[in-house]
């Protein structure tokens, strides 16, 4: 015997009824209601917290039960088994295991899954996408931060020619454009756009000076182009943003808007090392030493004592570690 409220679905009238189980039939009786039907035709709502639970009948009527423990007894004797998600949700140990699993899965997805997926995604995006992105980005930059280069023409021609004659580790020579620009805000800098176009700024050329060392910096940039790094970062930041919105979006858009940029620092560090490795192997292939890149980095470090002030190294963390790594690569290659 179990107290319940019966609703006919036609009006909001409450019928106080009693539920019982007879030969695996559910019997609902009392208050002008007299229903008997096989229990397997009854749909049982899952148990959510302390909310009263509903038994739905095929004709759209339903019973609402407040005494959840007594209902569990009745369900058990009727041979009803709650769904696995339902059981998972209210089993304390399983909830704790789920919490730990959640943290581990999110951490693993962030550490390995996301970069790998973004890498594959970046490689398979149609070239038209990266070309459009490049044109638009360049258009915006040219209208704001970037000015015409003031390097002498012969210097530019020479650098371009040297760049064009670099032999790539995978064979062939660079095909993407090398653009010369000048920028007060970006300082001594070089960067790669989504389709592989490299932008070289005047201040970087003047503060490094040595052509081979500039080629070392460009070989590092070719590493970014080779790995489609800028597209990869774009995809990664979109995914991180989507996750943050999913995670905290329910409670506060203020927190959901927390800068996804914070999350980017570690990723760019990984990509820098990838680009360094590619640059080093490119230099070796061209009969040059990876130490050239380390030397270029040291010069840039000297021209910007504090990397927080901007310039090429601001986006390239832990320069000392990178220089050590490059020297080790040079030693391994015997250069």
């Amino acid at each position: 015997m179990l107290q319940a409220s019966y609703f006919d679905g036609q009006s909001t009238r409450v019928h106080e009824v009693v539920l019982s189980l007879v030969d695996n039939d559910l019997v609902i009786s009392g208050d002008n209601v007299n229903v008997r039907l096989p229990f397997d035709q009854v749909q049982v709502d899952e148990r959510l917290g302390q909310a009263s639970r509903r038994l739905r009948l095929p004709d759209g009527t339903f019973c609402e039960v407040r005494d959840l423990d007594q209902l569990d007894n009745l369900l058990q004797s009727a041979g009803h088994r709650d769904g696995w998600v339902d059981r998972l949700q209210r089993h304390l140990q399983l909830v704790l295991v789920s919490s730990v699993a959640f943290v581990l899965i999110v951490a693993a997805a962030y550490q390995w899954g996301l970069p790998a997926a973004a890498k594959i995604g970046a490689r398979h995006l149609p070239p038209a996408v990266s070309e459009t992105l490049t044109t638009q980005t360049l258009k915006i930059l040219d209208g704001s931060f970037l000015k015409e280069s003031q390097l002498p023409n012969e210097r530019r021609t020479r650098l371009s020619a040297e760049f064009r004659s670099l032999r790539l580790p995978e064979g062939g020579t660079p095909t993407a454009p090398l653009l010369f620009r000048r920028s007060k805000q970006l300082g001594a800098n070089a960067f790669t756009l989504p389709d592989g176009t490299i932008v070289l700024l005047d201040d970087l050329v003047t503060s490094i000076g040595d052509t081979e060392q500039i080629m070392a910096v460009l070989s590092h940039e070719l590493g970014h182009a080779h790995g489609h790094h800028s597209l990869q970062l774009l995809l990664q930041s979109s995914a991180v943003g989507a996750f943050l919105t999913l995670y905290v979006g329910d409670i506060s858009t203020l927190i959901a808007a927390a800068p996804a940029a914070l999350v980017q620092a570690k990723y760019s560090q990984q990509l820098e090392q990838e680009a360094d490795d590619y640059g080093a192997s490119l230099l070796v292939k061209n009969g040059l030493s990876p130490v050239l890149l380390a030397d270029a980095l040291r010069k840039l470090l000297a021209s910007h004592p504090k990397s927080s002030e901007g310039g090429y190294l601001a986006s390239h963390p832990s320069t000392e570690a990178r220089m050590r790594h490059l020297r080790a690569l040079a030693a391994a290659a015997g250069r």
């Binding site: 998972l88 209210r90 304390l92 699993a101």
Partner: peptide, 9 residues
Amino acid sequence: FGIWIVNLL
């Protein structure tokens, strides 16, 4: 909490 974390997972 149980419902939230299980469904999030």
